[in-house]
Design a protein around this nucleic acid. Structure first.
Lengths: 218, 218, 218, 218
DNA sequence: GATGAATGAGGATTCATTCAT
DNA sequence: CATGAATGAATCCTCATTCAT
């Protein structure tokens, strides 16, 4: 499942270091000009090395984009894993997850935007790889939801709520023009929370269960 | 606010006809290869005329993209106006609007995808124009919501619910890989409805109002 | 067997004209710098058009080389066909053929040299095509020899004599440094003739045939 | 006339050893890809050392080619000197020389091919050096011919027969596609012998000399 | 109005060579 | 002596755009 980018450099540590520099420069550059308008020379410059050196660490321009996308998911995963307890049975776990996720999307706004706008520029197999990563994220949220509110939602509903949450986080980045002038991140998080709670609480009510977490929590 | 694409052709009818052909060919082509990978020659061919003729109806390649985007919004607007009654005070009006909108997003999946992936390739002023169109859409939904459920939600909440609905329609297209294998459009619409209703009903309940539409409707 | 080079130009006549210009410029250039050292821009310039125009008539740099090689064989074939009578049963026919061939090799010295030095730069399939052309040439000589001196030589001997003649013509070009300071073309032709005659005459003698053309002719 | 390739290494033995490795790897590589398509990195790898080390033993890529060409002539010379007696006055000496030479060309097919296809890639002065080597070879053959058959042929005829023999040996390599499917090396040698003898015998006959070696030998 | 040949700026990629370790 | 990371000039090719017919 892991996709490796070939490099003619032998020193593994060096590859890692250089690619981190590359990632940083490229994100900045892609944010400004987009992937297509950025030339390989500009990418090299932004990363702080020569065009020749750039090509010691990648094979094609598309590799740079993939490197960026891959690194984004690595960081998202790393940060979410620190925060999420997929076995916790409390509603708190869900809220905690959502809050952390929204915070993460706020921290990585530029990266998320790039992800949204440039994936289709990736070669087909890399696109597939990215989708797989998204599916992992989705699975994580589904788990948190179903653990937090067992027996409350149908699998289909869980799936949909997870999808909704996922893109609500991402839209904070790609619809910033619509949201960030009316909401602070805290407000955004709170209101989306409130609406989510309403959904769950009402569902719980419908089920009639009085000992139900969602119902109580409202 | 309306942006006009210059053309050296005088006959208005002809321009319209040609641009319709252009739109159709271009959408198909952009769906397959994306805007950047499509060459002007391919665009001309897909539209059924020569490269020389293409440039009689547009000035730059970006114009083609803008033409496509513009036409999308024109159609969205036309179809939504037929269906939406922004003055209706019934919850039904909202549900009606959402259902129509989701149906529209299903009909225009390819176009929506292009919109999502290629706007950043537009020149800045055209991007601004597209954002304005999105704002109009947003305003429309806000109106339907606030008319359907007066006094139920705060302006901020209305804004957020409208944004959520808008992208829920669009994600049916751009997350089709995650949604369309688990949902038919009808199912998708129904479940999202249900969740929306839950939100509104629960909000109504909180407000304690017994004469409230949302509360009754559940 | 015919290999076509793709072109985006529709006018067949134009293609032919332009490619003739291309051939002429390229031969001159390749003679001076060799194929590898010649840049595509230089090729375009030598042919009298822009780099963009060059690529309207070929797809890759290698195509230029193939075009040149192909044109060489076309001309060789055209000129030899005018001169050779493969059905003639006279020794004169052979001598006539050889003389014309040597003259041709003299006229096309630069082209022959290019052929010798650059074929291996062609893509595999084009190399195969060139070999096929050489085989045709070989067959032509074999026919002239066996018609000119029926029953004198074994097929193997015919094959070898044909090969010898073929490269004796070509070496006039590629070993010019060794030959052209000691021989005029006429001398070279005469001496090689004389040696060839000796071979045939002696073979005839060996066979004891007194009515044999080769024996008498000496 | 000897061209020295500069090296920064002091140890003469080491230089010689390294260059032998280099020669071996390079011939193999050039045979497969040709000189131009082979990169210096590939050359280094084929020789079994690093790119840095390669450049300790040569100064430019062309040096590698020259090294190869030079080594070829060294071996040709060494092997021919063992075999040829340029003072012998017997026809046998010539036949002996030719047979050995053809055998040598068979043994060094790949090298000969490289020589034919890549000399023009050498710098001008190196090309001159190679020509000089060829002239030496030519002189050797001329001597063997004129010693073997004194007074039989004019200097011009000797020159031409020598040239013919030389390239008949080489064409066994560069026209292998035409020859090696119809002839074994032995057959090729025998038939070319026979034809050569015919020439000489007939010449002798013409001269009327009855005590002549060539005439008797047939 | 329509056509398509011509243009050349621009961009991705390669690779011979160097030099610090 | 050996290594291999770094360099950037050089090169092939593409493609948006123009304009004469």
């Amino acid at each position: 499942m892991v996709k490796r980018i070939a490099s003619s450099i032998k020193d593994k540590k060096l590859i890692e270091r250089r690619r981190a520099e590359l990632h940083k420069g490229a994100v900045q550059l892609f944010k400004e000009k987009g992937f297509h308008r950025a030339t390989t020379r500009e990418i090299a410059k932004a990363a702080g090395f020569s065009i020749g050196t750039l090509y010691e660490y990648i094979r094609t321009k598309e590799d740079v984009l993939f490197l960026v996308c891959d690194a984004i998911y690595d960081e998202v995963k790393a940060r979410m894993e620190n925060v999420i307890d997929t076995t916790a049975t409390s509603e708190e776990a869900l809220y905690q997850a959502v809050e952390s996720y929204f915070q993460l999307m706020d921290d990585m706004q530029d990266e998320v935007l790039i992800l949204y706008q440039e994936v289709k520029a990736l070669p087909k197999d890399a696109q597939e790889y990215v989708l797989e990563k998204e599916r992992e994220m989705l699975g994580m949220f589904e788990e948190v939801i179903s653990n937090g509110f067992p027996n409350l939602l149908s699998p289909q509903e869980i799936n949909l709520v997870a999808n909704n949450l996922l893109i609500q986080g991402q839209m904070w980045s790609f619809r910033r023009w619509a949201l960030q002038k009316d909401f602070s991140l805290e407000e955004y998080t709170n209101v989306q929370f409130q609406l989510l709670k309403s959904q769950l609480a009402h569902q719980a009510q419908q089920k009639g269960g009085t000992n139900d977490a969602a119902a109580r929590s409202v």
